[in-house]
Design a protein around this nucleic acid. Structure first.
Length: 670
DNA sequence: AGTCCAATAAACAGTG
DNA sequence: ACACTGTTTATTGGAC
């Protein structure tokens, strides 16, 4: 029945649905049957790509720097330049080969192709999009820097016409080097911001294992080996050619001296976290711990001074190196200033994120008796463990969190069962299809978080039709929808279903008919569809638990502390253990830590060999799924004369659900 | 390799 | 006749 909602977006056109679902030239958007595997990119790959691109940009800048410098020197200081310096510059250009490294901005066509082939998950696409934005930004920065260089060059020429002395020239060169460093820093910071944003949105998972805290991860991401190599090139070139004179004067627009340097304590605090300890030797000698063979700038036999990476067999030689190579000079000072800015930036970001966290925690605990959470990230753990003790607070279903609050994080207290958003794990493993259905997980968290994305991007949502239909129905006030209203929900919520109209309607109907969880109810107005939640939950996930390898993985992950393996996270998700994913709360590493601790508290270590009742994967006390008061007799659609009688009442009955779910599952599995 | 599941396509029937 | 709704079957491919 075309009800009042018939005015809805029917851009799909009056598709001849019956029997000719694929009519009207709608391009079939099936699975990427022969999708080019090369496009299969994970978030980590994208991160690497971005870093590589940033490096290229930076190298381009460096090349320009060097070229301009070379030009000016050959023009102004013909006989003075040492051949070595010239060789150095030449050698710098050789590996750069900027012409060969075109910035890999994805063309709209390529983007469209990626979108249509659906080889990327929405999260990956978001990463991709944002990285493209970052690329743009970097290019803009590059252009800006070009202009800056031009003006600088002009001024340099003027000055050198006035003072033909070499000293002045060197000062300018020094300033240029610093300007470049500053520029590099800007690029880094842009990246940094970007990465933080990505992390906050849970779109990016830092590879665990190498760091202990997010900031460290971040910094590692910011200054990869290549970037450090670049830095080395810069600083070496700078040092070899000239050093003396304060670099504070003359560097245009970089004003490194102006920002109030962070307190040493703060520097130390960050140094201890991000490993990028950066301070004057004098400070080091006064501040560092006198512990033997231990130095913040020394780790794994390598000097950790930015851009150094010199290898030492013993600590003494490192100290010697530190005193000799990283003594108090212009270069070290400049590097220190740069590092200060990095730290400041991180602090700023940290403060913002702390504030955000505070607000989140305040919001989430406003109804509980918990004391207001402190901004300490680790309190996530406590809040998690606390929240699990009060599952009664959970409303019937995940539906209360409608997608209308995309930025609002999940409310743990209210959705013990739906916290999982496998999206954060999407990039970890192979791209799976429609993960939400697999684990019977409510899709609302993901949906709410990515609502905007799905609404605007012509990307297929990674949910099964059944999940989407269920979501549509449950979102409705009456928990019932006509077929047409379901259609409308699809088109309203997903750009993909706006464009690719024909087949999915057939699929919707097919799913409605096929799955027992969808119950058709005759209504006054016609027929409406409701969700039989019990049936829906009966559709069990595929069993993954019990894998010894998995258990071992978990154990090692915990054993190694916060470096929670991706496999572990994946297992958490696949085992239906609610976790505060990166999508819901900022830092993935923190989440990993929280998860690890929480998992430990939950006694998941006996995951594989506990007594049968609790070895089931989803038996997180926090999960407790949602608990529907189940009528004894199975629902019979035929017997119901009203849809409301079918709607799950979702009374919480712990006694029932605690073990029934899994016993049921096992029974069905066997 | 076999099984399960979801997506897709399509035929068909009932109804307004 | 037509469009919409609903059911059913078959095929395909991915994941396990």
């Amino acid at each position: 029945m075309m009800q009042e909602s018939g005015t809805e977006v029917t851009s799909n056109g009056p598709a001849n649905q019956s029997g000719a679902a694929n009519g009207e030239g709608v391009p079939r958007e099936g699975r990427p049957k022969s999708a080019t595997p090369s496009v299969d990119v994970t978030a980590v790959d994208l991160l690497n790509l971005q870093q590589h691109q940033a490096l290229q940009v930076a190298r381009q800048i460096l090349l320009q720097q060097q070229q301009q410098h070379q030009q000016q020197q050959s023009q102004q200081n013909l006989g003075r330049k040492s051949p070595k310096a010239s060789e150095k510059q030449q050698s710098l250009q050789v590996p750069v080969s900027v012409a060969m490294m075109t910035p890999q901005v994805i063309t709209p066509q390529q983007m469209q192709q990626i979108l249509q082939q659906q080889v990327l998950s929405p999260q990956q696409l978001q990463v991709l999009l944002q990285q493209q934005q970052a690329l743009m930004l970097q290019q803009q920065l590059q252009e800006f820097y070009k202009k800056q260089q031009e003006t600088l060059h002009l001024q340099l020429l003027q000055q050198q016409q006035q003072h033909a002395g070499s000293k002045q020239s060197k000062e300018q060169v020094s300033a240029q080097q610093l300007a470049f460093q500053q520029q590099l820093l800007q690029v880094q910071q842009a990246q940094q911001q970007h990465l933080l944003n990505l992390q906050r949105q849970g779109l990016l998972t830092i590879q665990p294992g190498q760091t202990s805290l997010p900031l460290h991860s971040l910094t590692q991401g910011m200054i990869p080996a290549e970037l450090q190599q670049l830095w080395k090139e810069v600083t070496n070139a700078h040092v070899k050619e000239e050093h003396n004179h304060s670099s504070n004067n003359g560097h245009r627009g970089l004003d490194l001296s102006s920002p109030a340097p962070p307190k040493n304590a703060i520097i130390n605090q960050h140094a201890s976290t991000n490993g990028q300890y950066m301070s004057h030797k004098r400070e080091v000698s006064t501040l560092e711990e006198p512990s033997h063979n231990s130095h913040p700038l020394y780790g794994h036999g390598v000097c950790k001074w930015p851009g150094c990476e010199a290898v030492f067999d013993d600590f003494q030689s490192f100290l010697k190196h530190l005193n000799n190579e990283h003594a108090l000079d212009d270069r070290s000072t400049a590097q220190c200033r740069v590092q200060m800015q990095v730290v400041q930036q991180l602090e700023l970001q940290l403060a913002k994120d702390k504030e955000r966290l505070q607000a989140m925690m305040t919001h989430l605990h406003v109804k509980s008796t918990e004391p207001k959470a402190t901004p300490q990230p680790l309190n996530l753990v406590s809040s998690v463990t606390l929240s699990k003790s009060a599952p009664e607070a959970s409303p019937p279903l995940s539906l209360p969190q409608t997608p209308t609050t995309p930025t609002a994080p999940l409310t743990p207290l209210s959705q013990t069962h739906s916290v999982i958003t496998a999206n954060s794990l999407h990039g970890v493993g192979p791209i799976r299809r429609r993960y939400s259905e697999k684990y019977n997980m409510p899709i609302s968290p993901d949906l709410s978080q990515n609502k905007e994305f799905y609404m605007n991007a012509d990307v297929r949502p990674p949910f099964t039709y059944a999940s989407l239909i269920r979501q549509a129905i449950l979102e409705s006030p009456e928990k019932q929808l006509t077929l047409n209203e379901i259609y409308n929900w699809f088109t309203r919520m997903f750009a993909y279903f706006r464009r690719n109209a024909a087949t999915w309607k057939n699929a919707v109907r097919h799913n409605l008919s096929l799955h027992k969880c969808f119950v058709r109810v005759e209504n006054v107005k016609g027929a409406v569809w409701t969700v039989d939640e019990i049936e829906f939950q009966k559709r069990r996930p595929q069993k993954i638990s019990g894998s010894p390898a998995l258990v071992k993985n978990i154990q090692t992950s915990l054993g190694y502390g916060p470096a929670l393996s991706a496999a572990f996270q994946a297992s958490m998700a696949e085992n239906n253990i609610p976790l505060y994913t990166t999508a819901s709360i900022g830092s993935p590493t923190l989440n990993s830590l929280a998860n690890a601790i929480r998992e430990e508290i939950n006694g998941a270590m006996d995951h594989g060999n506990s007594n049968g009742s609790d070895s089931s994967p989803g038996r997180s006390p926090l999960s407790a799924m949602h608990h529907i008061s189940v009528k004894e007799e199975p629902l019979d659609p035929e017997d119901h004369d009203g849809p409301l009688s079918l709607v799950t009442t979702a009374n919480h009955s712990p006694d029932f659900d605690h073990h029934r779910d899994y016993d049921d599952d096992h029974d069905d599995m066997l």
